[in-house]
Design a protein around this nucleic acid. Sequence first.
RNA 1: GCGCCCGUAGCUCAGUUGGAUAGAGCACUUGGCUUCGAACCAAGUGGUCGGGAGUUCGAAUCUCUCCGGGCGCGCCA
Length: 585
Amino acid sequence: MKSELERLLREALRSLVPHVLAEPADPAQVVVERARDAQHGDFASNIAMRLAKAARKNPRDLAQAIMAGIPANELIASAEIAGAGFINFRLVKNAWAAELRKVAAQGTAYGRSNVGAARKVMVEFVSANPTGPMHVGHGRQAAVGATLSNLLEATGHDVYREYYINDAGRQIDILAVSVYLRYLELCGETVTFPSNGYKAPYILPVAKALHEKRGDALRRPGADVMRGAPPDAPAGDKDKHVDGLIANSRRLLGDAEFDSIVLFGRDAMLADIRNDLDEFRVTFDKWFSERELNQSGAVDRAIEALRKSGHMYTKDGAEWFKSTDYGDDEDRVVIRANGEKTYFASDIAYHFDKRQRGHDLLIDVWGADHHGYVTRVRGALQALGAPGNCFEVTLLQLVSLFRGGEKLQMGKREGNFVTLRDLRNEVGNDACRFFYLMRSHDQALDFDLELAKSRSNENPVYYVQYAHARVCSVMKELGARGFSYDAAAGSQHLELLDTPHEQAVITALSKYPETVEQAALNRAPHAVVHYLRDLANTLHTYYNAEKWIVDDAALRNARVTLALAVQQVIRNGLEILGVSAPESM
RNA sequence: GCGCCCGUAGCUCAGUUGGAUAGAGCACUUGGCUUCGAACCAAGUGGUCGGGAGUUCGAAUCUCUCCGGGCGCGCCA
């Protein structure tokens, strides 16, 4: 409806241009917005004020002229000039009845659109290192990434969800060493655990499984090299200590056997992560392995392509990408002086690979602590010939956990952090996803466990679900009283829905499609949460103000049609959020 | 020091591609269940939109500056 009005205004303007404007007006100047309240009609436009200067007329006169130029239209009941020069439109009642029928007719498809024009979008999110369970920060990335994907899908994008597995590099070796040390302990060896190894309890069952699978086969003569810090590691140099242990392990076992432990550990961690995400209703089209990317030669090919682009140079024995050509603060190392490729090298290849797989738009969901990497990744893509705007990152600010007003402190390597699984078990998946999505992505999130857990009016997730359950309950009551709902009759008598409460509900309902569209466009899942809360509010208000089950059949059916439409929209909205819509609570 | 994010009611936050009287939840006060679920509703109290300057017919929104808080700034991943 909004776009229809904008088209009408644009037409009126076009016919007026020769008379009132010195130069053609920019169509973007035509803005139609929801009226702020019922007194201002249904929609308002500020077009006259925007163009007043160019037209050299005062806004109200210009508005008058524009209004006169609007062709007759069955949508508009009235238009009037108000305030400094707003044009306020009131729609015919019929316009809203049509919207209501649309909800009934389209069902789960209501609110979906095609504005994405089937553009191929890859959303990469979570991508938590497979070195341990996911924590509450990953939970936010999971909830936001999943909902963002749903929103893009609902607006007609061709969405591909991917999880990037960081299973190459040092950290995964540290995981393997950690598992191996625990394994050796099970074999009866005495070992020394490096301070930056993974000491948390979740390593133990993995080591145990390895021991069950392989017996003592990985216990090699000379295992005492896993005891004590290597001689070249000064006290306190934990990096050298753990690197020494990795080297010792490789020497003891051979590369192939060590790598088998790497994969064993990785797969165990990944199984846990995957199960966690499944339970959280977060799924992916692909789990993409960095290790496989390396082995395929894609990283070397990407680096070679970068060299050819002329944006690489050698300095201090290392090879650098000239990311300053693309707005970065400094250039970045791609190949270290010791010949090893950096993590950034994999990232370049990975994002290049995404493009080569045919994805036009790459959206990454990252923790805000990675914000410094955006520019260099985009720069590399540009150097490889991609447009800069094909890559965007939704940065999520920190999540802090509170319990009863007290902030919980967490550290990862020690394993005393609250896992996503703990959080879900404590507050439930619905409340969990809802809370994660309530805030704008650039707002730090204070997650209050007590509030999320509380089954009281303080908890906003139940407020929305309750509205849905309430309609279900009324439908049951309808049957209990011997009535049956006649959809056709309801649809025919929608003009009976003329109380202010009913008008408010219908108006709220009709905002759903534009809410979804804007939320997708702005990458703002939280907008859907706020919308649903408002919609639920109008329904609760209506429920308390009027009886729905009345003797008059026409009115009864019309009211139930309205209630069912709200129920449908709540269900559609909650589906996007990944929150259930219970029939009773 | 540099970069990014934030600062709006007592608390937690919407609103930020410039628009009319800045909104909601919680908390607090008062009222509403013999009739479809009170996990609900209604009414009320509560604001120098961090401070200042600028641009504009119009600024919470844009620009500059200052103050306060968070996160980054490795040939780690």
